[in-house]
Design a protein around this nucleic acid. Structure first.
Lengths: 190, 190
DNA sequence: GTCTATACACCGATAGAC
DNA sequence: GTCTATCGGTGTATAGAC
């Protein structure tokens, strides 16, 4: 397989993938080493224990999220549309890292929760800055959250199979525009 | 404690609670029997194995969800507002069962996923029936999903601590009204 | 119906060879 | 830097006493 990639990266990829597909329960060291095609000793050379491996995954998410935030801020369609557009799971590196760390957080990892909170807050801040209306901003971010869970978690809510993904997103972006228009017409808050 | 409740119910309650607070990983038989104040043998008399215990929890959710759907259909404010109102986690029996089974689904339990899909679809059907606009209906259901994950999962997205829960819901209900009004003004679809 | 005792598999981690 | 071998702990489940 892609055995050319450094072992450290292969291990992290395998761990992430197992978190997504099998959950924290299934992401055992044995499963990771099988998927990464290294031995247990090999893994524990790169990461002294499981916690260190999780920390590395969280650090990787943080980098990817920071880069994404730059793109979100610079997007010509604005942060709100960017957020909803990108909230559909397409299996990007960020998508995978995000879902993987969500799984970790669900397994009560405080560091994972903390990173997710920071990321979430950065989204909220950017969207609020754009629409200027806290309730509308919150609704847009929540919509993205719902989308992420619907589409991204194999075992979470079921994804809607009745609508093509592309059309589905286009429709939701129209809804976002409706919300943005409303916020603009009622420049009440903040 | 509430040792008057039948052992079977105590076991199920304990399992549910552990799924919510500790995740599938922490919901071990040992943890369940400790919390339910029964012995391991006692548990395995009522449920022949862990899978049977999970199945019983899923069945309990199905009953609670069916009863809730009746209320949702009959609510004077309509299904959409009912859904968003009730999507904030308040620790009701339905809330707990729902989150517990979501956790099971995240641990790749196919039966759990199937029930969640049925429940989700029934919500979507009712909301769509009310607003008559698929994209708006989808947005409203997604908003509820996002809310549920934000507030209901101890380790999921962080809950917003900056706004009081009551005010937060009231604001979101206003957003729902905006969406409903838009759907009514554009009776395009279906 | 509920208990104790125990079998057995699996997981995380260490030690040490190569 | 990667491997094998192995230990201690924990998890599920069974057997059988009460």
């Amino acid at each position: 397989m892609s055995n050319t990639r450094p072992a450290r990266d292969r291990i992290l990829d395998a761990y992430e993938e197992l978190l997504i597909n099998e959950g924290p329960r299934g992401a055992t060291l044995d499963a990771v080493v099988a998927r990464a095609e290294v031995s247990k000793g090999g893994l524990l050379y790169h990461f002294k224990n499981k916690e260190a491996m999780a920390a590395a995954l969280i650090a990787r998410l943080e980098e990817l999220a920071a880069a994404d935030l730059v793109r979100m801020r610079a997007d010509p369609e604005g942060p709100s549309r960017y957020l909803v557009r990108e909230s559909v799971y397409v299996g990007s590196a960020l998508d995978r890292a995000l879902i993987g760390v969500v799984r970790l957080a669900q397994a009560s990892d405080p560091d994972a929760s903390a990173v997710l909170e920071r990321i979430h807050r950065s989204w909220m801040d950017l969207v609020l800055e754009e629409v200027g209306h806290p309730a509308i901003a919150r609704a847009i971010v929540l919509l993205g959250d719902g989308l992420y869970y619907n589409e991204g978690l194999p075992g979470g809510w079921p994804r809607d199979q009745d609508s093509s993904a592309a059309q589905s997103v286009a429709d939701l972006l129209e809804v976002v525009d409706v919300l943005k228009a409303h916020a603009a017409s009622v420049p009440q808050n903040r």
